[in-house]
């Protein structure tokens, strides 16, 4: 049975955290096609979160064609795994990021500075998405 986590202090809305965890699990192979996600009630009881939050996360995953809800039975990982990222794209992104990191370290940024820079750009991008 898949187990969710929730980080209250992360600033990421709870339902998105659940969605991310499922996406990540799929990428890493911890969730396989045909697996059943925990029932809403089970997630609610273990994490003490609002059932609507879980329902929303599952709906989002369904919209992204990652899962399918079967009434009375549960929510299941789709048989045709929609690989969000092809291995080739994945590898090229890794290489690009590695190169950027090398440049950042060479410019004298330390790990914290790099993280701060990345987070601020990332947030800006997200906010512009919403706005």
């Amino acid at each position: 049975m898949f187990v969710f986590r929730l980080d209250s202090g992360s600033g990421v809305p709870p339902y998105l955290q659940l969605v991310h965890q499922v996406r990540q699990a799929l990428l890493l192979g911890f969730l396989q096609p045909g697996d059943r996600l925990p029932l809403i009630r089970e997630v609610v009881e273990s994490l003490a979160i609002n059932p609507n939050t879980v329902a929303k996360a599952y709906r989002q995953l369904e919209n992204e064609a990652l899962v399918t809800g079967r009434p009375g039975q549960g929510t299941f990982i789709n048989q045709t795994p929609t690989a969000t990222v092809s291995p080739a794209t994945y590898t090229s992104l890794r290489r690009g990021l590695q190169a950027w990191l090398d440049r950042a370290y060479a410019a004298g940024l330390d790990e914290q500075a790099i993280n701060a820079l990345f987070t601020s750009i990332h947030r800006e991008a997200k906010v512009e998405d919403v706005a």
Partner: peptide
């Protein structure tokens, strides 16, 4: 606190 919220959310789910 956590146990209480678990029970409460369980009631909402039910």
């Amino acid at each position: 606190r956590r146990e209480f919220l678990q029970s409460l959310m369980g009631a909402v789910a039910d």
